[in-house]
Write a protein that binds this DNA or RNA. Sequence first.
DNA 1: AAGAAAAATGAAAACGCTTGCATAAGGTAT
DNA 2: ATACCTTATGCAAGCGTTTTCATTTTTCTT
Lengths: 339, 339
Amino acid sequence: MARGPYPKLSDVARAAGVSLATASRALAEPALVRLRTRERVRAAAAMLGYVPHGAARALATRRSRTVGAVFPPVDNPIFAAATQALAHELAASGYTLLLATHEYDPASEREVTRTLLERAVDGLVLVGLDHDPELYRMISQAGVPYELMWSLDPAGFHPCVGVAHRIASVRATQHLLALGHREFAVLAGRTAHNDRTRERLAGVREALAARGIELRPERVVEADFALPAARQAFAALLSRAPGFTALVCGNDVLAIGALAECAARAILVPEAISIVGFDDIDMASGVTPALTTVRVPAAEMGRRAAARMLARLAGATVVPVEELPATLVVRASTGPAPR
Amino acid sequence: MARGPYPKLSDVARAAGVSLATASRALAEPALVRLRTRERVRAAAAMLGYVPHGAARALATRRSRTVGAVFPPVDNPIFAAATQALAHELAASGYTLLLATHEYDPASEREVTRTLLERAVDGLVLVGLDHDPELYRMISQAGVPYELMWSLDPAGFHPCVGVAHRIASVRATQHLLALGHREFAVLAGRTAHNDRTRERLAGVREALAARGIELRPERVVEADFALPAARQAFAALLSRAPGFTALVCGNDVLAIGALAECAARAILVPEAISIVGFDDIDMASGVTPALTTVRVPAAEMGRRAAARMLARLAGATVVPVEELPATLVVRASTGPAPR
DNA sequence: AAGAAAAATGAAAACGCTTGCATAAGGTAT
DNA sequence: ATACCTTATGCAAGCGTTTTCATTTTTCTT
């Protein structure tokens, strides 16, 4: 067929007997070309198996039809759900997701973000508020629109869609208080570079303080996001400062870890200890006892972030801060405090 | 600063007092330019906050430093793990992941793959063997190298890294046979367009057949990949053809769903029914009873696929078919058959 | 210190597409 | 038919890099 390995638009044009410009328009802006010509071009393109070259198009139009996302590890189910929704929603509008991940580490987050910017993404989606100032600088200098997921910017400066972690955490704690619990422990996620975990922890403190209850420092422990780490951290809590009847966890994986450790030690949940998680991942309802938790609509957040980004790329304006509900889901892992 | 909104290489060159060509080389091929000049260019680039334009580079070099991945929904933990590993590994070599997902649907898989090809990915990673012939045609016509994950091509035609699902499934079934089970049921994943689920199911049949045991059709049910669907399907199995003592599940999520349903119905596992899963997702060890399952090294597969792709992009050749071990992990959800 | 070889630089041509502007072709009203 | 609009098409100039090739500068030999 064509000399070169892959047909380009000029090959299509030649085959259809039209100019390059017309071929381009026939495919991209069909309304501008007469039906007959359009069909000829289409036929030629189909025959040659023409695939437009995105880079060339991006260069000419200055749009890559690509959105970048910078996520913490996406093997975390909540981020997986958001990623899935994001990719799916973007694809529906002809956009593709460029995915970059980092291990909660500002330096590598900066690095991968820079790479994304070099890939000429049309927009950028980030998780949370906590980012290196240098990262924000890079983004704004590149003039790329961005959206923050998960958190809500109290200043209303960053466009974002998220939930009110602190308030939700307060409510979860109040649920336990209402059940009569007075001795609390917290199995928190890592709070470094993570405003969500900090806010959740702060919420517990706030709710307890409002009732004049102190959260003893040795009753708070941070753990990595993984089952074994969670079990271990919970075990540490148990041996270091036993006697608590309520455990608030920074997320469901930590909570399920605690649950597993309880099962291993024959500690009854919720009879001896009540446990609440955060996120409401799929598994939260699958474990025994089913987990009381705060439902964070991760997939919906992904969809909304995509929709907001697409709207903005289309020139629309969106409300700067979009709050999604985070509701307490009471299941079987919480019960009245033992006396 | 610069007139135009964003500095380009020519701005950097001007600021550094060198030609465009030299500026390009100073940044991309430092060895080719004298130290002094190189530093001047670097300084100019830093000062202007220059960010190379990937599309332009891709156009000129005919490489986008981008790898596409076409995945079933990545909120499935096993795909999430693979995606994470893939993205991470690619990033380490300066490549970025373009992620596209589909809902086990050949048409949309074709569609998103085409989009990926239009984005000029340097390579493509797919899951499984079952793909529309048209899809294979598109890829080969585009001349893009690809890797298949999860499955092993028996013909050795497609480059792939995966596990032997059927054999692993045979082993899992033999484990149950060895425990004295004779009445089997299977809670399978959807087998349409999915060679993995088919192979796993075939493995059960094969192992049973070898012992002269028949798997009654009403003891086999397919379910979508989700907890509620799994519970429902298991419930159907229970009411339609009760009396089985061993349940083989197409994956861990289905198994955990069955476990949850058992808990709800006070069916003892493994005393009344033994259950085995497949995949060994994180949660498999977190549920009670901990799940006996077949460990599929999803993250490792992601890493290997990335490594293989990178190697090939660098001009190396790799073995066409790379098998990863899938080992049976015996935990607490399987036990001797009741008499 | 001269000449040759090596190293560093620059000019300009791609890369494959879009798009503003000018022109040609149809179509309508007179 | 003529003049006048539309509507379709084509020409050619970008878009921001890389890279070949020729040229200049530096370094090395003797």
